[in-house]
């Protein structure tokens, strides 16, 4: 694998992404949703932290949207 790339799991599926990038920079590749929230490695990541969080190889990303519920 190219060293400049990282392997992450996003919503349960493996994804290859460019390395050394922040979550804010990588999000457009991960979702087209307007309203969403994110957890990385089971920890919630507030929107204010997207710009500072650098994703690493093996990170597990959960990206959730509003859904019906009971």
């Amino acid at each position: 694998m190219n060293e400049a790339q990282i392997q992450v799991i996003c919503n349960g599926a493996p994804r290859t992404l460019p390395g050394a990038r922040t979550l804010a920079e990588l999000l457009p590749a991960l979702t087209d949703a307007c309203d969403f929230a994110v957890a990385v490695n089971e920890e919630f990541v507030p929107k204010s932290a997207y710009g500072a969080l650098r994703l690493a190889d093996g990170d597990r990303i959960e990206l959730v949207v509003p859904m019906e519920g009971g």
Partner: peptide, 13 residues
Amino acid sequence: VSVRRQQAGARGG
């Protein structure tokens, strides 16, 4: 309401 993973290819919910 709930939160769920966005379904691939769908404009989920």
